[in-house]
């Protein structure tokens, strides 16, 4: 039984994942959700997407891991996480006390390892897994799963074969042709696509004359990337049938609406969680105000309205 909030006007169904609002949290920006319970009601968030989880614990990168940039930030955390066993034993039971869908972001060093993590997460309390295909592919010697359609499809197929949960694939923007990536993961069976992950960037300390980040490059996030993200969602929405969870620099309801008009069926707030720890809840109020202002009943009615022509499942007329 799915709880009803806001008279159901913000309810969305993403490939079977029923959420009370379209607002999820970007993996890696919301910890395990529990860090934010002083600021918001977790049960009023659409879904909590937790930090990237791997089979074994990972210590992440050394050196400086984050730096602010114009209207954004670069990070090179390096997927630090306590591992899937710790997550299942210690974190998930705490998270399950809240009536909110849980999406677990997963990564591995080979397609098989992705499959293994997905299999471990076939437990009550996990509602979906999100495949992170932006981490280094150790097996293939440094190529990134997220930039090669065939490699991405292989990972998705492995996860689909092992998971009983709804599967989301998170796309990287650091590609020449994101549409071919989206089509490849759709063909491989992903139930939904989330996009975008961070854009690669570097910042130099001009006094020390060295890169600021220990890893030299980091992932750019925050409002600076939003137009790029909206463009990519707009492109992919016209090319695939699976639903899209749009993200990239969303700071307020208006930003979220932009993604939904571009074809996203749900959104995620990421970097904004660091600045406004209550935003994953409060953004819903602004969405309702928008619906009222435009005399629209449900948030689902605005999905894809800005596309050249609505997708088959969408209203063609306002």
């Amino acid at each position: 039984m799915v709880k009803s909030l806001y008279e159901g006007r913000l309810a969305v169904d993403i490939a079977g994942l029923k959420m009370a609002t379209p607002v999820t949290t970007g993996s890696g920006t919301f910890g395990f959700g529990l860090e934010f319970t002083d600021f918001l009601d977790l049960e009023k968030v659409g879904a909590v997407c937790v930090k990237g989880t791997s089979l074994l614990p990972s210590a992440g990168n050394k050196g400086q891991r984050a730096v602010e940039t114009p209207s954004g930030m670069l990070n090179c955390i390096g997927l630090e996480n306590p591992g899937s066993d710790y997550f299942l034993e210690h974190t998930l039971p705490e998270l399950r006390k809240y009536d909110v869908p849980v999406i677990v972001n997963i990564y591995g060093h080979s397609p098989e390892e992705y499959g293994e993590v997905a299999k471990k997460l076939n437990v009550d309390g996990v509602d979906a897994v999100e495949i992170n295909i932006s981490c280094p592919n150790v097996k293939e010697g440094g190529i990134v799963f997220g930039t090669c359609p065939d490699a991405a499809a292989e990972v998705v197929a492995q996860v689909k074969a092992n998971s009983e949960k709804m599967v989301i694939t998170k796309l990287s923007p650091n590609v020449t042709d994101i549409v071919s990536m989206a089509k490849a993961v759709e063909e491989a069976g992903t139930d939904a696509i989330s996009m975008i992950n961070t854009l690669l960037g570097t910042k130099i300390d001009i006094e020390r004359q060295r890169p600021v980040l220990g890893n030299i490059t980091g992932g750019l996030s925050g409002p600076a990337v939003r137009p790029v993200a909206v463009r990519l969602v707009y492109q992919v929405a016209q090319a695939v049938k699976v639903p899209i969870i749009g993200m990239g620099g969303i700071m307020c309801a208006e930003d979220a609406i932009e993604f939904m008009l571009a074809g996203a069926s749900a959104v995620a707030v990421g970097t904004a969680n660091f600045v406004h720890p209550d935003i994953a809840e409060t953004i819903a109020h602004g969405m309702l105000a928008y619906l009222d202002r435009h005399k629209v009943q449900n948030i689902t009615d605005i999905v894809g309205l800005a596309l050249p022509e609505g997708k088959a499942s969408m209203p063609l007329f306002r």
Partner: peptide
Amino acid sequence: YMACGLGACLSCA
């Protein structure tokens, strides 16, 4: 250097 101050972003490891 930290972003969130809440233990979520893991910048200040």
